[in-house]
Design a binder for these strands. Sequence first.
DNA 1: CCTTGCCTTGACGCTGACGACAAGGTTTAG
DNA 2: CTAAACCTTGTCGTCAGCGTCAAGGCAAGG
Lengths: 130, 130
Amino acid sequence: MLIGELAERAGTSTRTLRYYEAHGLVHPQRSANGYRVYDEAELRVVQEIRALLDVGFGLDDVRPFVACLRAGNASGGVCPDSVLVLRRKLAEVDDYLDRLGAVRQQLHTQLTHAIAHREETCPRKRASAP
Amino acid sequence: MLIGELAERAGTSTRTLRYYEAHGLVHPQRSANGYRVYDEAELRVVQEIRALLDVGFGLDDVRPFVACLRAGNASGGVCPDSVLVLRRKLAEVDDYLDRLGAVRQQLHTQLTHAIAHREETCPRKRASAP
DNA sequence: CCTTGCCTTGACGCTGACGACAAGGTTTAG
DNA sequence: CTAAACCTTGTCGTCAGCGTCAAGGCAAGG
């Protein structure tokens, strides 16, 4: 399988696949003319990479998962290194959820305050929207 | 007040203040020697900018709040344009919270699965941790 | 006069995951 | 012969909010 085919099958671009290779995530063989040749298994690998990036992982975070897949596991997440990353990411996400929740609260408060302010400076006849 | 003093009082850098100016958020006067001269009110403005950026706003989002403060309001959030931004941001945050929650769920599931997998391939004597 | 400590503009660096070219080789079909 | 459709490496651009020099002007104290 050449790079174009893999790109299409994985729903990505050739540029992306070369980028992953430059960062050590895929190691295609080369045919006589210098073309990259991928075997079927790489499709799974690329799909795993894409899925993890979509979820907010960085390329470095993805590496253990790729290695895990290459080691013959059906899922990239079952190896110890992957689990470490999963734990760390879960903690990060929880952290972010907390902060984002606080932000949401703040926005809500500001909005409420602004509405109240509008009612105060420009009151309606009783309490009804037009 | 010169730029260095404002920077320190606002807890930021001179570079940052010049950056805000380049993007039309502050308009200091100039003294005879070309130095930027800020009046006291600008401190509030800069603090508002910083607060909003910290919460995840972009510079463009911040503009209405600055204008609102300059219009004499005690809070930058009470003007109609600011309220629009607040509403939009609240929606964005809610959206992001949803997606982040889904991601969290996925991570949790993967972790659970990985633990189960470990128990399966490398079982303990009964069910206890060392 | 010299140093110190402000200030000025200008311009490159950074982070991440690519997109978008440029300039060229290969293979196949017509 | 040539056009089409692959492939190659290399390099620059993107987004945001600054950090970090660089090179120089201005003011004041000793």
